[in-house]
């Protein structure tokens, strides 16, 4: 068969069989059922469900806050990764482990902890309140929660790339007369850019589907702080399985499209660097 022609490695049959079975069972089957469920609606019903004002408001919040959260993580996650790779300091191991906490923590616990901190009576909320900054129960709170859960994705994708980047490159750039800014923009940034993009995509995708940590801090006010997953749960509470599936399908399509775009950007930067 053509498939096999290029590889001389043995074991293609069994590994490919396993891959297909695994992906089919774990990923494709539930998604197919989801799409199937939404087809029990007529086209008009589907359109009406997914364009209802509450649904639209929730897309804006979910996509906007996920995007903002992931963007914040690109900047600060990069900084964290940089510090962890380039400097030696006491307690570095602990800081390194700290980064993974959002991975490990049950999301509901994260949500309650964040709300406790940022509520008007909480440690941080109390300090911000007099400044007129309200975090808990506002879209800002949603963004904070999504930034929290997305951090490790950026750090952990950027970290290995940064540690592969030998300090000699920077020294070479400096000895050739590049300023610090130039070194950063023309040497470091292009190298880690693909990793940053991947980290962004992972954090973003995770944030879109996040439910547990957000529902506690968002306040769930209709039209204002309802995330899309909450709207889906709302539909399920009415036993409107088809309606819930319809909204889920929209989220699926949007996230998939965004991930494809990001992948395209990724391979474009790679090609460009390869050519340079």
């Amino acid at each position: 068969m053509r498939l096999q022609r290029r590889s001389s490695l043995p074991g293609f049959g069994i590994t490919m069989g396993f891959t297909l079975a695994y992906l089919g069972l774990i990923v494709l089957a539930p998604i197919c059922l989801l799409v199937l469920k939404s087809t029990s609606l007529t086209w008009e019903q589907f359109w009406q469900t997914v364009t209802a004002p509450r649904a639209l408001a929730s897309y804006r919040l979910s996509l906007g806050a996920s995007f903002a959260g992931a963007a914040i993580n690109v900047v600060f996650g990069f900084l964290v990764a940089w510090v962890l790779v380039r400097y030696e300091f006491p307690g570095k191991r602990i800081v390194d482990a700290l980064v993974d906490i959002p991975f490990a923590l049950p999301t509901a616990v994260a949500g309650i902890a964040l709300t406790t901190a940022y509520a008007p009576t909480g440690w941080i909320g109390r300090a911000l309140d007099p400044l007129g900054i309200h975090v808990a129960f506002t879209p800002l709170g949603v963004t904070v929660a999504l930034a929290f859960i997305g951090l490790p994705f950026v750090v952990r994708t950027v970290q290995p790339v940064l540690s592969d980047l030998e300090p000699e490159f920077e020294e070479a750039a400096a000895s050739l007369g590049a300023g610090r800014r130039q070194t950063f923009l023309r040497v470091i940034l292009p190298t880690v850019f693909p990793a940053l993009v991947t980290g962004f995509a992972l954090a973003f995708a995770r944030a879109i589907g996040e439910y547990g940590s957000v529902v506690f801090i968002s306040g769930n006010m209709p039209m204002k702080t309802e995330i899309t997953p909450l709207v889906i749960v709302t539909k399920l509470e009415q036993y409107d399985y088809a309606g819930a599936a319809a909204i889920a399908v929209v989220m699926l399509v949007v996230s998939f499209a965004l991930l494809v775009c990001i992948q395209a950007l990724h391979s474009w930067t790679r090609r460009r660097q390869g050519a340079a």
Partner: peptide, 18 residues
């Protein structure tokens, strides 16, 4: 590779999981 072996592997593994 023979395509039917791929299919068999797929089915066997699925059954084992169920």
């Amino acid at each position: 590779m023979k395509p039917n072996r791929l299919v068999t592997t797929t089915i066997l593994l699925s059954l084992a999981m169920m």
